[in-house]
Write a protein that binds this DNA or RNA. Structure first.
Length: 817
RNA sequence: GCCGGGAUGGCGGAACUGGCAGACGCAGCGGACUUAAAAUCCGCCGGAGCAAUCCUUGUGGGUUCGAGUCCCACUCCCGGCACCA
């Protein structure tokens, strides 16, 4: 075997050996503390690109590090296998989605194996297999029985391209489909929802978890909790049963400033309130806003418009009659779908009032206000005016005072509203887990009984997208009998959102092979996940759903923890040609060529080295040769015989001390960087150490035993990053297999301490000299040396020394005038 | 518009808690080895200047003995949210 780094020879060899020895198979029966390191599983789109490797290689390095630090590490892998892209790809190619997906999995599994990770493949989870989705369905039933799954007719997001409905979270940007980027439209459909809103308050709370601030903020914004007051306006319309319209406001203090009301076009009262002369205009407006997609409707560029209904309501606080309008800037899905308009103190209402010449009544006085008309809405706090008995109060107090008053009178109530909507999980597509529900003409909605799970996805469905679930046309699937009355009945033909599958996959890894339940008591050992790594794009989708899911099953007594992922870390995105890699964009860079040519270890290190992990960056392979060169040098350093020069025997001490110090400093640095997931500087430290070793070797001034100690430390520190090469060199240096079962080296703080430091001497903060001094130097000595420095003296000439600052171990700064 | 994150050599990036700016690597330049090339090894490598020295962390101000780091204002880039009453 050559002395050079030869990845083609060693990568496969060790991967095979590790697999044969089941080196990375983990068990719960282990005295070490557990560590559950999870990387978001990939979608089965075909093959893995560099972006996937960027997610997986560094997390594997960290998991290996934890393993060497004495943890029993679970680092599993699986496949997110249901969903639209597979179905679309299958349609395009005329292959069955199952065939397509399984072929992709095989390929991806192969790629994943080539990176040399410690995945325990015996725990693999594949969401599209009946043995998995049976439990997805089982959880659906649990949620159903707990009252957390319900069916309702609602205006929902419809993607015309994907031909299915989408959850709110899956509509991104200015109202486009998260998957395909098509503008989403509205449809009124009867769909299945999960009651995630019941957990809104708890989901707002991230106190017990260590997550990036950014993600926590995104989740909080998404949930959008706002506190305010719901109050009613009196209605008196002949033929209209309702005697009030309820509105939600966060500004009850402005209630005396209401000059009109606005209802959402979809508001149920609209058709009944509209006066005959306004009916045509109102109907036209309603029809128009229904047609518009969210991009048009929600665009803030567009001027707000609306129409008068011809109806009026009474502001109970002051008895004033206010006109009722409809406008599409009021959303049916938020609050009560109706707002009180206070143009003086709300920018939207101000614009609307200006456009339609509606009155503007000031009730919160800006500082120095003399009763003049406002140029724009005044939205800040101030002193209340024109507000009957509340006049003169600061508006913040007014909020409480008016809320109290409304509650006393029974006209209103303090409330909390959320932006978060219930999670819509129905999908009118084939490639997903069937919703285990049966419709019976006499019994209504009947859940499938547990023992009848899984509801198998039939293989022979016509899976073309028709806008209706393809399963609808599969009579064998649809026709069944009612579990309650045994009469002929129909199955639900929609499938579940794939985010349902990914809301619990991390539980399955903890209980592979469990056939009687989704998981068994082994779950208690592993969960929650200690470190979850993946992309930030899942902030308000997967990460929110999974939290909801765990809280829901916790309340059923199925698990005993509150949060699935104790610590979350988002690696950055690898981009190519300014864009995130994606098949549709055609800018995908495959790792395979790099791996086969330069070795898995080289690619692993390069991905860590390009920059801070959380930052990501543009893919550029120009630096990868530096990693190859380095690993080659490491190889030469370790493999080629070390020889002490005879004349060096007496000079041994200094070289030895320096090397020992470098060794311990490197152990410290690498350990600390590993803990903080600072892989780029960790690699740099190892390179520096290698450079130091090369100089030592060149000098030949060291006893062979000391040399060997340093090399051993180097190999151990390298092991998580370059598992194949480290294993090879470990063997070549005469150690016992396997380096991956060794303990991580410890550093000794005293041995790591510098003996000599560079003392920087400044005059007025400018660097003037640096001198090498013993680390033990005293302040007095340092000040004296500084004052005596010949390079410093000219700057002190003829100046008055005001003071001298001394920073131990760093510098002396002489301040002169 | 609002909320995050960021801006440092030709490039990716480093810099503890306010204390030597540019670690480590890429590219480049020079040299050694070689018939030659590749590979490898050694040296140089922010800008200006012969030099002493001066300038330099997006821009402008401030605090400090001392600022890439702290404060204020601004510009640009990236990400998220965006009529949420």
């Amino acid at each position: 075997m050559s002395d050079r780094y030869n990845p083609q020879e060693i990568d496969g060899k060790w991967q095979q050996r590790w697999a044969e020895d089941k080196l990375y198979q983990v068990s719960e029966d282990d005295p070490r503390p557990k560590w559950y390191a999870l990387t978001m599983f990939p979608y089965t789109s075909g093959d893995l690109h560099i972006g996937h490797w960027y997610a997986m290689a560094p997390s594997d390095v960290h998991a290996r590090f934890k393993r060497m630090r004495g943890y029993n590490v679970l680092h599993p892998m699986g496949f997110d296998a249901f969903g639209l892209p597979a179905e679309n790809a299958a349609i395009k190619r005329g292959i069955h989605p199952f065939t397509w997906t399984m072929k992709n999995i095989e390929n991806m599994r192969c790629q994943l194996k080539s990176i040399g990770a410690i995945y325990d493949w015996s725990r693999e989870a594949v969401t599209c297999l009946p043995e998995y989705y049976q439990w997805t369905q089982w959880f659906f039933l649990k949620l159903y029985h707990a009252g957390l799954a319900y069916r309702a007719k609602a205006p929902v997001n419809w993607c015309p391209h994907c031909q299915t409905v989408l959850a709110n979270e899956q509509v991104v940007g200015s109202g486009v489909c998260e998957r395909c980027g098509t503008a989403v439209t509205r449809r009124d459909l009867e769909q299945w929802f999960f009651r995630i809103t019941r957990y809104a308050d708890e989901l707002m709370e991230h106190r017990s978890i260590d997550w990036p601030e950014r993600i926590k903020t995104m989740q909080r914004n998404w949930i959008g909790r706002s506190t305010g007051t719901e109050l009613s306006f009196a209605l008196d319309h002949p033929g209209v049963e309702e005697k009030e319209i309820r509105v939600f406001t966060t500004r009850p203090d402005t209630a005396f400033g209401v000059t009109f009301m606005v209802l959402a076009p979809e508001h149920p009262l609209v058709t009944r309130l509209v006066s005959p002369d306004r009916r045509a205009a109102v109907e036209e407006y309603v029809a128009r806003s229904r047609q518009q997609n969210d991009i048009e409707r929600l665009s803030t560029e567009r001027e707000r418009d609306g129409v008068f209904t011809g109806a009026y309501a009474i502001n109970r606080l002051n008895g004033e009659r206010v006109s009722i309008w409809i406008a599409d800037y009021v959303l049916m899905g938020y609050g009560t779908g109706a707002v009180m308009a206070v143009p003086a103190h709300d920018t939207r209402d101000f614009d609307f009032a200006s456009k339609y010449n509606l009155p503007i009544k000031v009730v919160i006085a800006p500082a120095g206000w003399q009763g003049e008309e406002l140029e724009e809405a005044y939205t800040e706090p101030g002193i209340m005016v024109n507000s009957a008995q509340f006049t003169g109060l600061p508006s913040q107090q007014g909020m409480d005072a008016i809320s109290d008053f409304l509650e006393e009178k029974g006209w209103g109530k303090r409330t909390i509203t959320y932006r978060l909507r219930d999670w819509l999980i129905s999908r009118q597509r084939y490639w997903g887990a069937p919703i285990p529900i049966i419709y019976c003409d006499s019994c209504g909605i009947v859940p499938v009984t547990e023992k009848d799970l899984p509801v198998l996805l039939p293989e022979d469905a016509e899976f073309k997208p028709t806008g209706e679930s393809p399963l609808k046309y599969n009579r064998q699937f649809v026709n069944t009998t009612c579990p309650q009355c045994s009469a002929p009945a129909r199955r639900e033909t929609d499938t579940m959102d794939t985010f349902m599958c990914s809301s619990w996959y991390f539980l399955r890894y903890a209980s592979p092979g469990c056939h009687s339940a989704p998981f068994d008591r082994r779950l208690k050992y592993w969960l929650p996940v200690d470190l979850y790594t993946g992309g930030a794009e899942h902030a308000v989708m997967h990460l929110l759903y999974a939290r909801f899911f765990i809280k829901a099953i916790r309340d059923m007594g199925l698990v005993d923890f509150d949060e699935p992922f104790t610590r979350l870390f988002n690696q950055g995105t690898i981009i190519a040609q300014k864009h995130k890699m994606s098949k549709s964009r055609g800018n995908v860079v495959t790792p395979d060529g790099y791996v086969s040519e330069l070795g898995a270890d080289t690619v692993r290190v390069y991905l860590m080295f390009i920059g801070p992990w959380e930052q990501g960056g543009e893919w550029n392979d120009s630096g990868i040769s530096g990693i190859s060169r380095w690993l080659n040098r490491v190889c030469g350093l370790v493999v080629e015989e070390y020889q002490m020069k005879p004349e060096a025997v007496t000079g041994d001490n200094k070289v030895r001390g320096d090397l020992q110090r470098a060794t311990h400093q490197t152990i410290r640095k690498v350990t600390e960087d590993m803990e903080r997931l600072r892989f780029n500087t960790m690699v740099a430290a190892l390179m520096e150490f290698t450079n130091h070793l090369a100089k030592v070797k060149e000098s030949g001034g060291l006893a062979a035993s000391a040399w060997k100690e340093a090399i051993d430390a180097l190999l151990l520190l390298l092991a998580p990053s370059v598992p194949h090469l480290a294993e090879e060199l470990w063997m070549r240096t005469g150690h016992e297999y396997s380096i991956h079962n060794q303990r991580w080296p410890e550093w000794d703080e005293t041995l790591a301490e510098d003996e000599e430091i560079t003392l920087v001497i400044q005059v007025n903060g400018k660097l003037r000299d640096r001198i090498a001094v013993p680390a033990s130097i005293t302040e007095v000595e340092a000040r004296q040396l500084a004052a005596e420095s010949t390079r410093v003296k000219p700057y002190l000439q003829g100046k008055e020394a005001l003071k001298t600052i001394y920073v131990p171990g760093r510098l002396v700064n002489i301040v002169v005038k």
